[in-house]
């Protein structure tokens, strides 16, 4: 039921946009193509940022830094109430959507989808996003109107990092509350 509803959202929004096109007085289809043309231009303007970002993130993934960080943080995490199994996810979540999804799928396969670590990881995945990617892309979006982009992002990264850390602890605490039978 929920799956049907969530699958219906996007088509319904499109339907909502298609209704005005029946209007005889105004040409809404022309508005659509105008907007779409602007969207395409924006995407092309984003490409230089995306290249720098994707190269840096691909290097980070390939360098083995994830394993090193996971090894170094293991003891500390256990003491803070974070299951050590979710560390690869913790390290990849801020930098890469595909790598953290891979880390998550890997975790489900290795410890079982109903284990406490997997449930913790699910809550974390559901309530966080790829910090570095989002902030970088959003701020490069300031340039697509033709103006020079914002260079000083002030406290954006710091705040997002605080939220991410808060999210990790909260995800573990909430999971402990909900899934005590899974062996927290």
């Amino acid at each position: 039921m929920i799956e049907i509803l969530s699958g219906a959202i996007m088509p319904c929004v499109l339907l909502l946009a298609a209704i005005p096109m029946l209007s005889k007085r105004r040409d809404f289809f022309a508005r659509f193509t105008e907007g779409a043309r602007e969207g395409l231009t924006s995407a092309v303007r984003l490409l230089p940022t995306m290249i720098a970002l994707c190269v840096a993130l691909a290097m980070f993934r390939a360098s083995g830094a994830v394993d090193l960080l996971t090894g170094a943080l293991g003891g500390a995490a256990a003491r803070l109430g974070i299951p050590a199994e979710i560390l690869p996810l913790l390290v990849t979540r801020p930098v890469s959507g595909s790598a953290s999804t891979a880390a998550y799928a890997d975790l489900l396969a290795s410890v079982g989808a109903d284990s406490f670590a997997a449930l913790c990881a699910s809550v974390l995945m559901g309530s966080s996003d790829t910090l570095v990617y989002v902030i970088t892309v959003y701020f490069s979006g300031t340039a697509i109107g033709g103006k020079p982009p914002v260079r000083r992002t002030r406290h954006a990264f710091f705040t997002a990092a605080c939220v991410m850390i808060f999210c990790v602890f909260l995800a573990c605490a909430v999971s402990r509350l909900f899934f005590s039978e899974a062996g927290a």
Partner: peptide, 19 residues
């Protein structure tokens, strides 16, 4: 990634303009 984003961006910017 940008090319696949471009399709979605064009579509949603168009829909947004209509709405």
């Amino acid at each position: 990634l940008t090319l696949s984003l471009a399709g979605m961006m064009a579509l949603w910017c168009g829909v947004m303009r209509v709405l």
